[in-house]
């Protein structure tokens, strides 16, 4: 069962990368296994849970629903790009701690990336828009209330509320 292979070029959290990827490789596996960025998680394999959410060319994308080859020529952002180890958490990450918006932390990177895209795309963000905007990300621990509060807090601080 020979795999086709493809050369791709992309930026990952602002840094240029080149790689040769199997045709059947999912973007999420490329991110986790090849790039070694393990903050992007897998929760459902069917595009429902959002644990694998990353930002591609400014849009939130479920990386288990794309092949690695589709990232060719794109700008990829993962949770590791929000703040690196040893750096201070960014405003959204800090708000998640303040509001206790994470428990096990498994959904958190995907939730952060969806919220990042939501906050960056909006000029105004109401409570209902935040709740609907996070619909694609499942969290089984928090009941979502504190996640909504955290995003609302950041929206207010960024003048979007």
């Amino acid at each position: 069962m020979p795999d086709s292979v493809h050369a791709i070029e992309l930026t990952v959290n602002g840094e240029p990368h080149e790689a040769v990827v199997p045709g059947r490789q999912l973007l999420v596996h490329f991110i986790r296994d090849t790039l070694g960025l393990r903050g992007t998680h897998i929760g459902c394999d069917s595009g429902n849970c959002g644990a694998c959410t990353v930002i591609v060319d400014g849009k939130a994308v479920k990386s288990c629903m794309q092949l690695a080859v589709q990232a060719d020529g794109r700008a990829l952002e993962t949770v590791e790009g929000l703040s690196g180890p040893g750096e201070e958490p960014n405003d959204l990450q800090a708000a998640f701690t303040r509001h206790h918006a994470l428990q096990c932390g498994y959904c958190t990177p995907g939730m952060l990336m969806s919220a990042t895209a939501l906050l960056e795309q909006a000029e105004e963000l109401s409570l209902d828009e935040i709740r609907r905007g996070l619909k694609g990300n499942i969290c089984r621990c928090t009941g979502y209330v504190n996640i909504v509060r955290a995003v609302e807090d950041v929206a207010a601080r960024r003048g979007l509320a």
Binding site: R32, R38, T40, G84, P85, P89, T97, L102, G105
Partner: peptide
């Protein structure tokens, strides 16, 4: 008090079994 475990989980530095 803020949770001690939060920073690594928020920065994608948690260690789950598949990691």
């Amino acid at each position: 008090i803020p949770r001690k475990e939060d920073r690594r989980l928020l920065q994608g530095q948690g260690l789950f079994t598949d990691d």
